[in-house]
Design a binder for these strands. Sequence first.
RNA 1: GGAGAGGUGGCAGAGUGGUCGAAUGCGCGCGCUUGGAAAGCGCGUGUAGGCGCAAGCCUACCGGGGGUUCGAAUCCCCCCCUCUCCGCCA
Length: 423
Amino acid sequence: MLDPKLLRESPDLVRAAIAKKHLEVDLDAVLAVDAAWRTQLQEVEALRAAQKAANAATASLPKGSPEFAAKIAEMKAVSTQVKERDAKLKEMEEQLRNAMLTLPNIPHASVPEGRTPQDNVVAATHGDPAQVGAHARPHWEIPGFEKLFDFARGAKVTGAGFPFFIGDGAKLVRSLLHFFLEEDGKAGYVEVSPPIFVNAASATATGALPDKEGQMYETTPDRLFAVPTAELPLTNFFRDEILDESVLPVYRCAYTPCFRREAGSYGKDVRGLNRVHQFDKVELLKWVHPATSYDELDKLRDDAERLLQKLELPYRVLLMCGGDLGFGQAKKYDLEVWGAGQKRWLEVSSCSNYEAFQARRAQIRFRSKETGKPELVHTINGSGLAVPRVLAALLENNLQADGRVKIPAALVPYFGKEYLSFQ
RNA sequence: GGAGAGGUGGCAGAGUGGUCGAAUGCGCGCGCUUGGAAAGCGCGUGUAGGCGCAAGCCUACCGGGGGUUCGAAUCCCCCCCUCUCCGCCA
């Protein structure tokens, strides 16, 4: 959600933001709703002030006296009027809130212009895609793949996109998670093991509701949502709180399974481990002082990149253009690992600065030492990292002539062996 | 899951349906006092929204939502949470 004051004082900034994100929003309609609401608010508050004054006067009159009775009769009329206008005001408040929710966050000045993924800017490339994967093939075509990654039985037991990981497959998942958490811990992120279901209030505060309602698994009868990312429980940790400025920045990481219904996905995207309904991911999240948020975004991106470097996987960093930015994001980098067999880039981390957009909706603030007043924090998050696609890239890039997969040196202490075998 | 008790400001804790944004204490801030500190004394100390150049003014908020009433922290209903006891259980 945007700052209503910004909308009133600088509507052109908001207009430019909408254009840069290539969204269709009727800003004038929002402004009109806002103006109407303020007029109504002033009317209601004036009436209330009168009502309060009259009530105070009544209190000093002797009960049962003619003056008392007269005053009450008089106030009945005011009361009726307040109720009518107040009902109208509530309606308009709801309208205003809905209108405000249609306004996207403002992209940072450094975000490139552009409409489609083709307009994203390659900010960095690490490793040489051409030099790896001599024996590469799509991971799902590696002989013996289904022994370690059993999609067919997963489909039987639960449904498509819920694979079983078996033997070395399961062990590799566990090794990666352990590796990620250890490395993230060294980088200063405090490990958290959060609930993997959140309530509607939490889902709403981070914007998952109502926008992505159909993308989440929902439980009955309690109406809890299986988390699509640890970002949800993690961000909501400080919901409706005012932090001491001295605790900022707060760095946290969390492993959770992530659940996504992925309605509407199709094609190559969904082959093998590229896109599944349940997957494991370590999420990095920071709550920071607004003055430092872009430095913190870059540092978080470095932290995520370092994981890929240690795994010796080729990857690139995309700076997302305006049109490819999420609704609430001010700036975003995607980390894409090279899938040597599929010959595709696979997104494994999305590092974003939401500035105050999430914080306003979730009411996460800190008390400014300077002003003594509460201010909204900036929130930054990114994966560090998502397991299945890293695993897919590992299989494809490190496949040997003998059909085994070489485990990167950094991972060997966790995996316990230098090779993964499909036998 | 059952029975009971309770949710009030940073914390503790009062509050008869009417001048209660809410006593009092603690904490915190500023000042006085002191050689310095403690104690003591005085003043101040919530959040949000609207209006205003500003000083400031107005409105709302006593777990959340709804209701009764001219008027609700106080009465009624629903929900959430916490505590105690019982049951069940990894």
